[in-house]
Design a protein around this nucleic acid. Sequence first.
DNA 1: CTCAGTGCAAACCGTTTGCAAACGT
DNA 2: ACGTTTGCAAACGGTTTGCACTGAG
Lengths: 151, 151
Amino acid sequence: MATISLKDIQKLKDDLKEKGYKFTPQRRSIVDTIIASEGKHLTAEEIYDEVKKICPEIGLATVYRTILLLEQMGIIYKLDLNDGCSRYELAHQDEVHRHHHLVCSKCGKVIEVEDDLLEELEKDIQKKYNFKIKDHSVKFFGLCSECRDDK
Amino acid sequence: MATISLKDIQKLKDDLKEKGYKFTPQRRSIVDTIIASEGKHLTAEEIYDEVKKICPEIGLATVYRTILLLEQMGIIYKLDLNDGCSRYELAHQDEVHRHHHLVCSKCGKVIEVEDDLLEELEKDIQKKYNFKIKDHSVKFFGLCSECRDDK
DNA sequence: CTCAGTGCAAACCGTTTGCAAACGT
DNA sequence: ACGTTTGCAAACGGTTTGCACTGAG
């Protein structure tokens, strides 16, 4: 589990300052909320609802704008689970490529898979298609351990 | 390249009839259009524009409804390329799982990859997470052969 | 003091839905 | 004839934008 330390918050503050951005209370609340709900893959609206508990006067637009900023800075990743809205998760600091997801078709649970195991396939593709791979998005759909039992 | 024959059209017609659905001119035009634009990964609106050339009185809602029907029947797949709308492609008849896609970050080109090469990873995941994999969605982002040269 | 950031509301855009008319079987 | 399908327009829901005000540096 990738926990974010005070050092990371300071780093983020510095990154923002470097680009002329400000570290406002709203931005801080949003970052705090995303960190606190790690593993939940919240939508923008869900983040909004959560942030309002700390920062009741915040607007939904600010949440969207901050999310965009964090995404561009590589702090968070957008995740599409085919449910009609975008979800977000913290980027793990140590991963080169995005990790994979298992999505249960029955209960909707999302499991994160750290193992990459795509080197061989990526090497093949780079050679065969002369395509320089920068990142990937890998999702597996099926039944999680709990749901496969009831069937 | 998966070309669809008259036999496939007949099969589709039968499948529809079996479920009490009708094979209307609109549906036929939409199927024809999707077949004719294989490899293009059109959006619903793009399919609509294309279909209107054959069937000018068609409505956008009909395109959406037909696309949904075809998707549920397994004739086409929905594809999400992170550009804010859903795109569709013919399901290749011979593939067990969906094929992969290479998306060029520069020119936007989408290349289809037939090779699966995920058996090992999937076997590992099924065992480690006790997750029964039914299908997957695999996209690689990077630079295509043409775009990597100019950089 | 200045300009980036904010909250609000309206706009946006892809998609879905309700309905009466039209049409395939 | 029946019930599905259609076209239209309105509704929908997530996201973006314009604008005047606010507040961080």
